[in-house]
Amino acid sequence: MKVLVVSDNHGEAEILKQLKARHKEEVDHFIHCGDSELTFSDEAMNGYHGVRGNCDLDTSYPETLTKELSGHKLFVTHGHLHQIKSSLLPLKYAAEEAGANIACFGHSHIAGAEYMDNILFVNPGSISLPRMTTDKSYAIIELKDKMFFVHYYNEKGEKLSSHTFEK
């Protein structure tokens, strides 16, 4: 199973449409970790399971989202309510409380993946305004047997890096 994770497009609707068109045949689920700055009903958000970020005005988005995906439980949040810029500990507690083994978040605009205490943490970075790099990015999480693969891509779909974690 594959899950595309994107965050922090800050009003750029076209890139979300491009990602869906590019990956619709290979990806099973599309996740948006907030700060789309689009309305919940915007056409560009169609097909994405999204949450509300600190820059999202539309209160129709949930603050967090939990999804069951092929034997895995995914916890999605923007991150601003879980102090992710300081520590992953509050996010870890929230994911554990939700019974999740994958936690997706944005907010920092910095791409990264880490496996800690049986939880995979994935920040796709920002598809519009990256920090600590010039690469606008998104991630695809691939779940295979007892392995997690996290692949990072730039806005053109070119692979930037990959990480492998054993469950």
Rank of each mutant, 00 (worst) to 15 (best):
Tyr152Lys: 00
Phe165Arg: 11
Leu65Ser: 05
Lys146Leu: 09
Val27Glu: 10
Asp56Cys: 10
Leu81Lys: 11
Gly125Thr: 00
Thr77Trp: 01
Phe30Trp: 14
Met45His: 04
Tyr138Pro: 02
Val76Asn: 02
Asn101His: 06
Ser87Trp: 03
Asp42Met: 10
Lys136Trp: 02
Ser60Thr: 13
Lys67Leu: 14
Gln18Phe: 07
His82Phe: 13
Ser137Met: 03
Leu4Thr: 04
Ala21Ile: 11
Gly99Leu: 10
His109Tyr: 05
Ile140His: 02
Leu38Lys: 06
Ser7Gln: 03
Gly47Ile: 08
Asn123Tyr: 00
Met45Lys: 04
Asn154Gly: 04
Asp117Gln: 12
Ala103His: 06
Val51His: 03
Asp145Leu: 09
Asp35Ala: 09
Ala94Trp: 02
Phe165Lys: 10
Glu14Ile: 08
Ser41Pro: 04
Glu26His: 11
Ser137Pro: 05
Glu26Lys: 11
Thr39Met: 11
Asn118Phe: 09
Lys2Asn: 14
Leu4Ala: 14
Lys92Asn: 07
Glu158Phe: 08
Glu68Met: 06
Ser162Met: 13
His109Thr: 07
Cys104His: 04
His78Lys: 04
His163Ile: 03
Pro62Lys: 06
Arg52Asp: 03
Ile140Ser: 01
Ser137Leu: 03
Leu57Gly: 15
Ala113Ser: 15
Phe165Ser: 10
Lys20Ser: 03
Phe75Ile: 01
His32Val: 14
Arg131Thr: 03
Asn9Lys: 00
Asn154Ser: 13
Gly106Cys: 07
Gly79Gln: 00
Gly34Arg: 10
Ile119Asn: 07
Ala21Trp: 06
Ser60Cys: 12
Glu26Thr: 15
Met147Gly: 01
